[in-house]
């Protein structure tokens, strides 16, 4: 255990991440208030994805994990994306 190196994040960096996340939340709520119609869905999901990635990278410490863990997480999201695409092969072309 003691031989392994762990990256210790500072309290400040966690605080900074929170500020980013809160601003993104404000952004997406604000955009929703503008009633942009069709784009609003895309914007909301895009902002959510950025927030999700931030949580994964910093709070969940992915940035400091092994390459394998990163690949694993990326592959799992890719798999899910493929499932959505193949499912919509049916619903979009009916």
């Amino acid at each position: 255990m003691s031989t392994e190196k762990h990256h210790i994040s500072t309290y400040m960096s966690h605080g900074a991440v929170l500020v980013i996340l809160l601003s993104l939340t404000a952004l997406s709520v604000g955009m929703a208030e503008l009633h942009l119609g069709a784009i609003s869905v895309a914007v909301a999901l895009l902002v959510a994805s950025v927030k999700g990635t931030t949580v994964l990278t910093y709070f969940m410490h992915l940035k400091y994990e092994s390459l394998f863990t990163k690949i694993m997480v990326a592959a799992v999201f890719l798999m899910y994306a493929l499932v959505i695409i193949f499912l919509f092969f049916d619903y979009l072309f009916r």
């Binding site: 009633h35 999700g52 994964l56």
Partner: peptide
């Protein structure tokens, strides 16, 4: 964090995409 992550996606889907 997973609980948070899921909520990050639930939030726009349920409250924002209007």
């Amino acid at each position: 964090h997973l609980v948070d992550l899921i909520w990050i996606f639930l939030f726009p889907m349920m409250y924002l995409i209007t």
